[in-house]
């Protein structure tokens, strides 16, 4: 046994030699090229957003220096600042709401045995496969007949309800991994089950909740279809729908530099979030998909 371990150690050290790296060279090349392409696209868009339309077309970017006024124009003349605030409001409230609804439910489904538990779990999982088109028409007719279209609250409520199944699904696996000792100890000390959840279990589940919330943040921030149908008014539009309508209008006015500035503004928040938290985001994807 001891010998085997030794052998492993030697082999491990060998891994970092030149020969090993040379074998991996084609692999490095492929992924590097792919990443280079991504960098080129994003880098060029950022450069172009500081340039002028004329310079972009004549391939003489920055001949007349930097043009930050593209951003001023996009933010204020084209209402991007308004769309941005809308998105921020929708995303922050919806993400909080999703956790408030999904976490308690996931906790009960993960830790208590009762009749119908399996059925409820399968129902929530099935929701992940229902195309948006199946739910949009009845929702629209109900919301219109209640005269609630173009309301922030309705859109936020929809965002919460739509993202609850995925969040429950994600958090169930998370709550299952927590030890049972805490609940038992709390029960012996006379702590009620509700209090146990809010005071003991929820803080313990924090890492899982943060991961799934970052994931939800990106989903809600980028959501397009629901907003297109339920909030298609300048004052209510989130960034995705706002950018779309702006791109269309800028194609007619021919303001390409302004259009690229708007793209950068829309792209920035999730990009920065990702820059700092990419490990968490990635954990959210794999944690959600691998069990299904």
């Amino acid at each position: 046994m001891a010998q085997k371990v030794k052998y492993k150690e030697i082999k491990y050290k060998e891994k970092t030699t030149w020969k090993k790296e040379a074998v991996l060279l084609p692999g490095y090349l492929v992924v590097s090229l792919w990443c280079l392409f991504t960098f080129l696209v994003i880098g060029w868009i950022i450069l172009a957003s500081f340039s002028t339309t004329k310079e972009i077309f004549s391939d003489t970017m920055f001949a007349t220096g930097l043009h930050p006024e593209n951003y001023v124009k996009a933010l204020f003349t084209h209402n991007v600042s308004k769309y941005f605030m809308n998105s921020l409001i929708y995303t922050l409230i919806a993400c909080t709401g999703i956790v408030c609804v999904a976490a308690p439910a996931a906790y009960v489904l993960a830790r208590f045995v009762f009749r119908g538990n399996k059925l409820l779990q399968s129902l929530f999982i099935a929701a992940l496969g229902i195309p948006a088109i199946m739910i949009i028409m009845p929702l629209f007719s109900v919301i219109t007949s209640m005269r609630l279209t173009n309301s922030r609250m309705v859109l936020i409520l929809l965002y919460i309800c739509i993202n609850v199944p995925f969040t429950i699904f994600f958090l169930i696996t998370f709550f299952k991994t927590l030890p049972y000792d805490f609940e038992e100890a709390a029960a012996i000390d006379g702590c009620g089950p509700m209090k146990t959840f809010w005071v003991i279990m929820l803080p313990l589940a924090q890492p899982g909740i943060i991961t799934v919330t970052i994931f939800n943040f990106i989903t809600v921030w980028n959501e397009y279809f629901m907003a297109l149908i339920f909030a298609n008014k300048t004052e209510l539009r989130p960034v995705a729908v706002g950018l779309y309508s702006m791109v269309q209008s800028m194609r007619y006015t021919g303001d390409w530099a302004g259009m690229f500035a708007a793209v950068v503004i829309v792209f920035l928040p999730t990009f920065i979030l990702y820059l700092f938290l990419s490990e968490k985001v990635i954990a959210g994807v794999t944690g959600g998909a691998i069990k299904g």
């Binding site: 990443c35 991504t38 990106i218 397009y224 950018l243 779309y244 999730t270 990009f271 990419s278 985001v281």
Partner: peptide, 15 residues
């Protein structure tokens, strides 16, 4: 590499 290749998924599809 993994973060860069996944990057397009965190950006708005419209962008």
């Amino acid at each position: 590499y993994r973060s860069i290749i996944y990057l397009p998924n965190v950006v708005s599809a419209v962008a």
